Computed example of a mutant assay.
Amino acid sequence: MTASGASRAAIRLIVPGNVRHNSGGNAYNSALTRGLTALGTDVENCPVDGHWPVGREEERRRLAGLLLGDGGATSPAPSTARVTIVDGLVALGAPEALEAAAAAGRPAWILVHMTLPGHADREGMALAAAAGVICASSTAAAELRGRHSSAERSPARIHVALPGTSAAALAAGSSPPHLIAVAALLPNKDQLLLLEALAGIRDLPWTASLVGSDSADPAYAESVRGAVIRLGLTERVSVPGELSGPTLDAEWGRADLSLLISRTEAYGMVVTESLARGIPVVVRDGTGAVEALAAGSPGGSEAPDDGGPPNLPGAAVVLGADPAPLEAALRTWLTDPGLRSRWRDTALAARTRLPGWDFTARTVLDAIAASGPAN
């Protein structure tokens, strides 16, 4: 099932209907759809409502019905082989639906953005019932292999299709330096820790923007805005909510440093989005964001075992609940012109090596083709 093959590909992509904000998974799914379409693949996006992951019993039954029947989907042409791919946020907690589809001779693929360690048994059953598994990061793939390699029913073959990156305008930066953190306001993204670190460098000139949805967790968003006031950062830090289009482009354009310090992260597409604009990034060590930070490095995009080579376009900082290491990293960057120049130069070099979404789409099609005829 390649773009140049005699049989035209058709893919039905089942995505969670309960994620309304601009998550990395949603962005990946949308960009993958565009990339596949550009390669001549018919793609139908099917949102399925539910309390995912896991969902309720009736929601899992509805998913099974969608996998077993057309579910309102347009039937492909006779010369077209259809493949169903289910977003892991939906599939990993609903193994019964995957098993029903496999039993009927219509196994579905799973596209994993984030794993489901809190429901490892259900995750393992879903993987075992899948036609194949595509992970959006090497980090997620390694986690799945490590958790299920000794399971009674080994999971289907796992492939990796790293996120692509769209071309973007080079950021001009600002004076004083402007820091940007693009992520939904959620506890996992740890904006509160970031604000504590920023409060420790108030003696230096800088500004910052925390850009991201404030509707995913309104209580946490309120805590973030309250912390800006409590820490005396109202003249330095803006929290504009989720932005898009020219307004978001303007925020990117004035940025000098990007931050993604999530407690857990399978990849972190905002990292490569930053690099595409020549903006270096500070990430939390031990997360998949380190893999993204190395995506444009000459050695490739595998996460280095030692935290990364010295020429990373930014840094991976070891973080817990104490903001001091992040505060120290930011202070060093702000006060060391040589370091700022090296990070910027490395980000500019990485910018030219980032793969596009056509690469991601071809990787997905090649994985499906290698598994044999579609069901």
Rank of each mutant, 00 (worst) to 15 (best):
R20D: 15
R20W: 13
H21P: 07
N22Y: 07
G25Q: 01
N26D: 11
A27T: 13
A27D: 12
Y28G: 01
S30H: 11
L32V: 00
G35T: 00
L39F: 04
D42G: 05
E44W: 06
E44D: 12
N45H: 11
D49C: 04
D49G: 09
G50M: 07
W52K: 09
P53H: 07
P53Q: 08
P53T: 01
V54C: 13
G55P: 04
R56D: 14
R60C: 04
R61I: 09
R62S: 14
L63R: 10
L63W: 10
A64C: 10
G65C: 09
L66W: 05
L67Q: 02
L68E: 02
L68Y: 01
D70E: 14
G71R: 07
G72L: 02
A73T: 08
A73P: 05
A73L: 06
S75E: 13
S75R: 12
A77I: 00
P78D: 11
P78R: 08
S79K: 02
A81I: 03
R82T: 07
V83N: 05
T84S: 09
T84Y: 03
I85L: 14
I85Q: 08
V86T: 05
G88T: 07
G88R: 11
G88I: 03
L89N: 06
L89K: 06
V90D: 10
V90I: 10
G93A: 09
G93P: 10
A94F: 07
A94P: 12
A94N: 12
A94C: 14
A94M: 10
P95V: 07
E96M: 09
A97E: 04
A97V: 07
A97G: 11
E99N: 12
E99S: 15
A100Q: 12
A100C: 10
A103G: 12
A103S: 15
A103T: 08
A104D: 13
A104N: 08
G105H: 12
A108L: 04
A108N: 06
W109I: 01
H113N: 14
M114K: 06
M114V: 02
M114T: 10
P117S: 08
G118F: 00
G118L: 05
H119G: 06
H119F: 14
D121A: 14
D121F: 07
G124C: 11
M125N: 11
M125V: 10
A126Y: 01
A126K: 01
A126H: 02
A130Q: 03
A131D: 01
V133H: 02
I134Y: 01
A136N: 15
A136H: 05
A136T: 13
S138P: 06
A140D: 07
A142R: 15
E143I: 08
